[in-house]
Design a protein around this nucleic acid. Structure first.
Lengths: 191, 191
DNA sequence: TCATGAAATTACCAAATGTTAATTAACACC
DNA sequence: GGTGTTAATTAACATTTGGTAATTTCATGA
């Protein structure tokens, strides 16, 4: 649980006794590559902390895949809009690498929130961060072309080395063919 | 402060005594149409609750405006990525209607968070909601065309009646000319 | 009321992206 | 090693969107 503890400590400084109460609520999970932690229409109950590895979140409509998001080590995720009322997932979550997860139920989180004010603070900070990072993504879509979004991603992450072009392109909001074309243009421009 | 109190009550049930401590930290502000609450490069210090009216948040780069967001009554907003470290705003925030605001400083919010666990919970829920709503926007960009995004917006909001096409189009990530064209196509299709 | 300027519309052409389909490359399985 | 499956690339064409510019509409203030 080392990674999880470090992650928590980046946000709040909990007493050891408190941490000893909180941590047991997390369940460790090893998810092999291409296995699912949740499928569409399943009831959403848990948050996940990713200690290592990576996940893809995607939807399938009319046989077409839409990549919503990728999540990697040291990310804390949860489908907030569904989890609150035990709604059903509108996407699949699959491991794209062998992944070590720590899951905790919505119910347990709420209990801990009420019991430990610092844990509530942890929750607040997590969601503030999540909000800020998605906001950044929105601004990208509003103001950049597909090629610019791709170049921005290159600068900020190692995503292209970890996920297939097909999934990446849909995440960027373009077709795989388009991204392939963009990639070619860039490689030509470099010469 | 009625609207603000109602808004808070939607999230948490605070004791009257607590509320009496918290509310005075908010400063009431009437912002006339086209007046700014913050301009680019100014240091960001405050959160805002909008009791009535509306705001536009936009950036200007190379003389071109980029609409980031519109905020209306009963929204609680703050530039989380800047406010934490007293960073400078990368956008302008302007009233698009006469607007009644309640502002509170980052510092005061932090103080109140620590003092009232329920206020911390309020903060967490606010940002969870904000995250969920921005996430919805991202999915739109990832999977819809400009026309589909416009139609989706029509269904969900009265934005088109409250903001000029120019600002709205940039919010949707297209040029004003494009949106004008789209609007025409839709009106033709209706006949 | 008129004059002014900004917003909205329209048109035309260029650039970007989507669609369909064929080809090649990579990779897992036998 | 060969076979089959999927991903990635490429190409040709269609559609969407952008950029520039002209025209019209609309709101505002003199």
């Amino acid at each position: 649980m080392d990674k999880l503890i470090k992650f928590i400590n980046r946000y709040v400084t909990l007493e050891k006794e408190d941490l000893d109460v909180i941590l047991p609520f997390f369940k460790r999970n090893i998810l092999l590559k291409d296995k699912f932690i949740i499928k569409k229409e399943q009831v959403v109950t848990d948050y996940y902390f990713i200690a290592s590895g990576g996940l893809i979140i995607y939807d399938i409509k009319d046989e077409i895949q839409f990549t919503r998001y990728f999540a990697f080590e040291n990310e804390f995720i949860g489908d907030i809009s569904k989890i609150r009322n035990r709604g059903r997932s509108d996407s699949y979550i699959k491991a794209i690498e062998d992944t070590e997860l720590y899951s905790i139920s919505y119910k347990d989180m709420e209990t801990l929130y009420d019991r430990f004010p610092l844990w509530q603070k942890f929750g607040r900070l997590i969601w503030e961060d999540s909000f800020a990072s998605v906001l950044y993504g929105i601004h990208n879509f509003q103001s950049l072309t597909a090629k610019e979004r791709y170049l921005d991603l290159l600068k900020r992450s190692d995503l292209i080395f970890r996920v297939p072009l097909k999934d990446l392109s849909l995440f960027l909001g373009v077709t795989p063919q388009s991204l392939s074309r963009i990639r070619k243009e860039i490689s030509i421009a470099k010469e």
